[in-house]
């Protein structure tokens, strides 16, 4: 396995997108068999399947960019935490259904506008993957927005749980649309998404849904960052310990 201390900018960028879907898909898949209603169990599993499917397309592309022996599996199962490039939000634990829905709502709102912009990428492969996944992501955003409204405007208990989840997860929203030097560089090249451009679109959509849900937008919140650059929360290590167990315990085997 080669060392990942340095990625090319293109590769780093692809991994960011891939890892967001991979870790988010992992988290959502934890619900399978434990959903609050059978229909919702099935819907969440569908979403996890979509996200994991997307992450595979991006990881396969990343593996090709790296060349050599790399595959989607070596990238998913043999990198350590500092080599992952997902945002902090997606590694937050599932918590109750409210936490899961708010996390999805914040992520999907971003993911939708991001992927829509990625359709304009000068990188043919990224553009293709974006095209293939936009329909799924449109559905994810609809699903999580509807549940945000339903639970925000449901009972007193559901409202409180939702507000609580919003307050807890809001500090992880900033990183999604905050451009760092790589984001700026890739946007300038025409490969990546201009986060400054989508930030107000995401903000407007989130605001609208929050209003309809009767949820209060937290003010003056400190925004955590670091996942995109490989500095993660403690949660990611446990996700990887579970996700990578087989490949670590039985190196080099075919499954």
């Amino acid at each position: 396995m080669q060392s990942y201390t340095k990625y090319s900018p293109e590769l780093e960028y692809v991994l960011r997108i891939a890892d967001n879907s991979l870790i988010m898909g992992h988290r959502v898949s934890e619900w399978c068999g434990h959903g609050p209603v059978l229909e919702q169990d099935i819907a969440l599993t569908n979403i996890a399947l979509d996200l994991l499917g997307q992450s595979r397309m991006y990881l396969q592309y990343a593996a090709e960019l790296m060349g050599g022996e790399e595959t989607e599996d070596s990238l998913a199962f043999l990198r350590d935490a500092m080599q992952f490039r997902n945002c902090l939000l997606v590694e937050r634990p599932n918590g109750d259904f409210a936490h899961t829905m708010v996390r999805s709502f914040l992520f999907d709102s971003f993911h939708y506008f991001f992927t829509k912009e990625l359709l304009n990428s000068s990188d043919k492969r990224l553009k293709d993957i974006a095209e293939k996944s936009l329909k799924e992501i449109t559905y994810h955003r609809k699903f999580s927005a509807e549940w945000t409204i339903r639970l925000g405007d449901g009972t007193e208990e559901s409202h409180n749980r939702m507000q609580n989840a919003v307050d807890e997860l809001w500090p992880y929203k900033g990183e999604l649309t905050h451009p760092d030097s790589l984001d700026k560089k890739m946007a300038k090249k025409g490969v990546g998404v201009d986060l400054k451009k989508i930030e107000p679109m995401v903000g407007e959509f989130v605001g609208q849904i929050m209003d309809r849900a009767g949820l209060k937008t937290p003010q003056d919140v400190y925004m955590h960052r670091g996942g995109k650059e490989g500095t993660h929360s403690e949660h990611l290590g446990f996700i990887l310990a579970e996700m990578q167990f087989m490949q670590r315990a039985y190196p080099g085997q075919k499954w």
Binding site: S29, G33, L49, L59, D73, F77, M246, Q253, W255
Partner: peptide
Amino acid sequence: ITRAPSMRRKVALLAKVQDEAG
């Protein structure tokens, strides 16, 4: 599901368990 040994197996297993829910 969260421990499947490859991405292909993971997705296939997730889809299988979802079929059972169906």
